[in-house]
Amino acid sequence: MASPTSSAPTTVLAIILPAYNEAGQIGTVLDDLPDRLPGVDRIERIVVDDGSRDATGPIARTHGAIVVRHRLNRGVGLARRTGLAAARAIGATVAVTLDADGQHDPDEISTVIAPVLAGQADLVVGSRLMNPAGMPPIKRLVNRSANLFLRLAWGIHSTDSQSGFRAYRVVSVNRLRLRTSGYEADTEILIAAQEAKFRVIEVPIRAIYTEYSTGAGRGQSLLNSITIVLRLIIRTITG
């Protein structure tokens, strides 16, 4: 592994996978990640084991990932923040977050990170709704409702505010004021990005819906969306 303090400027990409009880899928997801990408000198895989009760962490480690473990399950939002802190610590210049259940296509990582590599964006959101073919109608409804809420409440236009497939310019991440730790973090990041005057770009991505990724307890329910809205309102009121 090259030293992050090496004098030659290198582009290091950290692929961050927040994972909770994903032992059944994490190995396959890690194996499918690219080893090489144009414009990237080194790729590191970081799995944030969010207090899993199964063998997610050990399996990820055997598949070559750097594993950092939350001692308690705190939610995907905090797992992403921990992943971004780890990315910065290992000297990454660009970070990309993916879901660990295999719903994101690793071949599209290069598309998502391209605007950051080109210096055009601090944050890139991979949007499933720019081309929603194959997306279950209920998920479309939930996502469009969340987008509308974001637009009405904060004046932020996003076609997919709930996407977990995002790329970050790592040096900019410390400017984000983030507090939430659950699914509401996806929306909070967009709000914080607006507050920090980030350059945000959306690119179309394809979401893969399998029996596994849409199984019980995965993704967001309509009821969960109400909790998310309440938490975001409280976040705004209390600063």
Binding site: H70, A85, R88, A89
Partner: peptide, 23 residues
């Protein structure tokens, strides 16, 4: 949350945890 993140960053390979903590 801050505590859990700091503990998690201790899992990083040698030397990098220190950098994470200062960050």
């Amino acid at each position: 949350n801050a505590l859990i993140t700091q503990l998690a960053l201790r899992d990083l390979p040698g030397g990098q945890e220190e950098k994470a903590r200062s960050n």
